[in-house]
Design a binder for these strands. Structure first.
Length: 439
DNA sequence: TCTGGGGTCCTAGGACCC
DNA sequence: TCTGGGGTCCTAGGACCC
């Protein structure tokens, strides 16, 4: 192994591709180089790539959910924000183009974007649909490019091949790389050296740092910590005293000490799986609420089966009109991802938590303590025999559904929820009637 | 009778992310 | 901005044990 390379301390400036001047000092050899790439208004970006006529217009997505999920920069300029109700957009901004989300396309573009990054980088962590981290450390030599050049190439290829705009950050840690990719947006490329990190952090409000949410920001503000630099300037002992472990990690990362690993393993292990649905107006209709829960149980079990996971327990919850949670935790006698096993257990608890006269706005189911599926003991006389019969049936149905590319069979208790969906302009419920399985 | 110190496991709930 | 649908991790505190 060669010793760490001496670095000269000359600092030069360079122009990023969008013309912004960014300080680019020497990158110290022993430090990591982490890339963070972030799609600019990603969902809307994909819509524009699909239909270039939309370029330059105020566009939002989220029509089917009733709130804005993504918005173009033109829409933002009008004063529209994420989460704004669609009816308000229609009323106050009649010229804005409102689109339903097209999740399949988003996944497709997301995959293509990550594949471009992987042309250059082996260790890529797909952090969310529109963001990933890449470990560039040491790739400059074999690729024959500077780190900045690698980032520029990736950006150019995403721009040209996918017609998508992205912002990129390069820094010695993940947290700093997030600061960097956010620094110039859209279409930015920013490098943060640890020696220069303070210059950036001075201009970043503490609440903008990844991992510091509104609660903690407020607490810190009360202690006169307003910017990321204020936080940086505290000593670690103080952080430990006031806050919990994740914040020590953030402090170290801001100081250029990389403690968060890049996790490039594809996501196949979940510790929980959740399905929820809100509706308006809020309702007390028991049949309706139960059918919603029934559907959530079916859908969450389907997802668990897809990843070969079984829960040891699960919870059902109702959220009231006033955003109060009522939940019931249910332990399974033996782990199972067959809805027929969960449903009767859930029903008893549902009867308990559902109160007369209370209006509910959301239903939800979470499968918890997921573990890798195992073949149940061959106990022919006990409940396991029945459970494994259900598992066999579901495996067949899952295969069928994969073949048809859609959900074809539902349990009878879910019927009401399906009908309701059909009314919203979804699938034809008469088609589904044939496929209901009654127990 | 009165009482210590330490460990593990579990749960609820808070806080955060996109 | 009266608020969608997924997730993760951490901590405090109780139960139980020696």
């Amino acid at each position: 192994m060669s010793p760490p390379k001496e670095t000269n301390n000359k600092i030069n400036t360079a122009k990023s591709s969008d013309g912004t001047i960014v300080k680019a000092g020497p990158i110290v050899k022993r430090e990591k180089v982490i890339l963070h790439i972030d799609g600019d208004a990603f969902f809307v970006g994909v819509e524009i790539a699909k239909n270039p006529k939309l370029r330059g217009l105020p566009v939002v997505t989220g029509e089917e959910r009733g709130i804005v999920s993504a918005l173009s920069y033109e829409a933002k300029a009008l004063g529209i924000t994420r989460g704004m109700p669609i009816f308000r957009v229609k009323r106050e901004f009649p010229k804005v183009k409102i689109l339903p989300g097209d999740y399949h396309s988003y996944v497709e573009y997301s995959t293509k974007m990550f594949d471009i990054v992987r042309r250059y980088v082996d260790d890529v962590e797909e952090y969310s649909i529109d963001e990933c981290f890449g470990e560039l450390t040491g790739l400059d030599k074999p690729l024959g490019m500077s780190y900045r050049q690698i980032a520029e190439r990736i950006k150019k290829e995403v721009n040209e091949e996918l017609d998508l705009s992205v912002s990129i950050g390069l820094a010695p840690t993940k947290v700093l790389a997030k600061v960097a990719s956010n620094w110039v947006k859209p279409n930015g490329l920013t490098v943060i050296e640890s020696a220069l990190a303070v210059d950036f952090l001075q201009k970043v409000p503490i609440k903008k740092i990844w991992g510091i949410g509104p609660r903690t920001a407020e607490l810190l503000n009360r202690k006169d910590i307003m910017t990321a630099k204020d936080f940086y300037d505290k000593d670690i002992a103080w952080i430990k005293l006031i806050l919990s472990k994740p914040y020590e990690t953030i402090w170290q990362e801001l100081h250029g000490i990389s403690v968060m690993e890049i996790d490039s393993a594809p996501k196949t292990v979940y510790s929980s799986v959740q399905k929820t649905r809100s509706f308006h107006p809020s309702t007390n209709d028991k049949t309706f609420l139960w059918s919603q829960l029934s559907k959530h149980i079916e859908d969450s079990c389907r997802k668990a089966r897809h990843f070969n996971l079984v829960p040891r327990k699960f919870s059902i919850f109702l959220k009231t009109k006033d955003f109060e949670f009522v939940t019931a935790l249910i332990l399974l006698p033996s782990p199972s991802n067959s809805p027929e096993i969960l449903l009767p257990l859930a029903h008893a608890h549902f009867e308990n938590i559902h109160k007369k006269g209370v209006l509910y706005r959301t239903t939800g189911v979470t499968l918890l303590d997921l573990m890798a599926d195992f073949v149940p003991q061959d106990d022919l006389f006990g409940s396991n025999a029945q459970a494994s019969k259900f598992e066999t049936i579901h495996k067949q149905i899952d295969l069928l559904e994969e073949k048809f590319g859609k959900i074809v069979i539902y349990l009878g208790s879910t019927k009401n929820a399906i009908d309701h969906k059909a009314q919203d302009g979804g699938t034809d419920s008469e088609d589904l009637d044939k496929n209901l399985l009654f127990l």
